[in-house]
C-alpha cells in the first residue's frame, strides 16, 4: 500500500504539479501584496491569508514525497498519515493566527485608528497608493480561483483532504479580495473604519478555514469512520462498503476507519475466511484502490474498543 495505486497515479502527478504552480503563483501574489500593503490593515490581513494559503500546498507536497515510501522497521505501516499529521498542525496554527488577527483588528476598530495611505511616485507621476493596493488585490484573486477550480475534481478522485480543503479555501479567495478592495475604497472615501472592518472580516474567514481544516484532520487521527471530503459526515462510499461487508458476514461486527486516502476495514468476531472477495467486488467501480486493508479478528481476540 506504500506505492501510489496505478488508478490514481496520473491524478496524483497532476495534483503535485498544481501544488507547485500554487507555490509559484501565490508566491508572486505575496510579493506584490507585500510591496503595496502600506498601512492598510485589510491588505496586511489579506497578505497573511495569502501566505497561509501556501501551507496546504507545502503540506501536500511534503506528504506526497513521504507517502510512497516503503514502510520501515520503526514505521511498519508506512507514512500514509504524514499528510494528516502535517495538516492537523497547520490547521491549528491557521485557527490561532486567525484569532490573533481578529483580536488585533477588532482592537484597531475600537481604538478608532485612522489608516494613512499616502501618495507614491512611479515613473515621475504621483498617484495614490490605494489604487496600487486595489490592483494588487485584483491580481491576488485570479490565481487562487483558477487553481481552486482545477484542484477540486482531482481531490475528489484521489480522496485527498488536504487538497480538497486547499481547493475550497482558494475558490473562496475572491471574497477576501473583494473585502480588501472594499476596505481600501472605504479609506479613499474617508471612511476610516472600513479598512479595519474589512480586516476583521478577513480574519474571521481565516478562523473559519482553520476550524474546518482542524475538524477534518482530527477525525482521521481519532480513527473516526471515513469522512466525506465536503463537510464532516460519513462518506457514502464507506457506508456502501459497510453494507456489502455486513451482507457477506452478517454475524460479524464491521468497523471502518481511514488512513490517509485509504479505507481500512475490519470484520470482528469472524475467522479469516478461506476465500476473500477482491476489492473490486466490495468497492464502487473504479474505486477499488481505496480499500487499503480488510482484516478479520476471531471472536475473543478483538481490541479493547470492541468491548465498550
Amino acid at each position: 500500500m506504500s506505492e501510489i495505486p496505478s488508478a490514481i497515479k496520473q491524478d496524483f502527478r497532476n495534483a503535485k504539479k498544481l501544488e507547485w504552480w500554487t507555490l509559484g503563483w501565490m508566491g508572486s501574489v505575496v510579493v506584490v501584496m507585500y510591496f503595496t500593503m502600506g498601512a492598510s490593515q485589510a491588505m496586511k490581513t489579506a497578505l497573511f491569508e495569502d501566505v497561509l494559503s501556501l501551507v496546504p500546498a507545502m503540506t501536500f507536497l511534503v506528504s506526497a514525497h513521504l507517502e510512497p515510501r516503503a514502510p520501515t522497521e520503526k514505521f511498519p505501516y508506512g507514512f500514509l498519515r504524514a499528510n494528516s499529521l502535517a495538516f492537523l498542525g497547520s490547521s491549528v496554527v491557521l485557527t490561532f493566527l486567525g484569532l490573533f488577527l481578529a483580536y488585533t483588528n477588532g482592537m484597531g476598530l475600537m481604538k478608532g485608528e485612522h489608516p494613512t495611505v499616502g501618495p507614491v511616485t512611479m515613473f515621475g507621476e504621483t498617484i495614490w497608493l490605494g489604487w496600487l493596493m486595489i490592483a494588487a488585490l485584483v491580481y491576488s484573486v485570479v490565481p487562487p480561483v483558477i487553481l481552486g477550480r482545477l484542484k477540486q475534481p482531482i481531490a475528489q478522485r484521489i480522496s485527498d483532504k488536504v487538497l480538497y480543503t486547499d481547493s475550497l479555501m482558494q475558490k473562496a479567495d475572491w471574497q477576501t479580495g473583494l473585502a480588501g478592495i472594499a476596505g481600501i475604497v472605504g479609506i479613499g472615501l474617508g471612511l476610516w473604519w472600513a479598512d479595519s472592518l474589512a480586516a476583521l472580516l478577513i480574519s474571521i474567514s481565516i478562523v473559519k478555514d482553520g476550524i474546518t481544516a482542524t475538524r477534518s484532520a482530527s477525525a482521521e487521527l481519532l480513527d473516526g469512520a471515513p469522512r466525506r471530503l465536503e463537510g464532516s459526515g460519513v462518506s457514502e462510499e464507506a457506508v456502501r462498503l459497510q453494507d456489502r461487508l455486513q451482507q457477506r458476514w452478517p454475524e460479524g461486527r464491521i468497523r471502518l476507519r481511514e488512513s490517509g486516502r485509504y479505507i481500512l476495514a475490519s470484520v470482528d468476531g469472524i475467522e479469516t475466511p478461506g476465500e476473500i472477495p477482491p476489492a473490486e467486488e466490495l468497492m464502487d467501480p473504479g474505486r477499488s484502490w481505496r480499500l487499503g486493508r480488510l482484516s478479520f479478528t476471531p471472536h475473543g481476540k478483538e481490541d479493547p474498543a470492541h468491548h465498550r
Binding site: T116, G118, T126, G130, I187, G188
Partner: peptide, 13 residues
C-alpha cells in the same frame, strides 16, 4: 494628522 489622505496627497502634489 493620521488618515488625512486627501490632505497628504495635496501636499505631495
Amino acid at each position: 494628522m493620521n488618515g488625512e489622505n486627501g490632505w497628504l496627497m495635496l501636499g505631495s502634489e
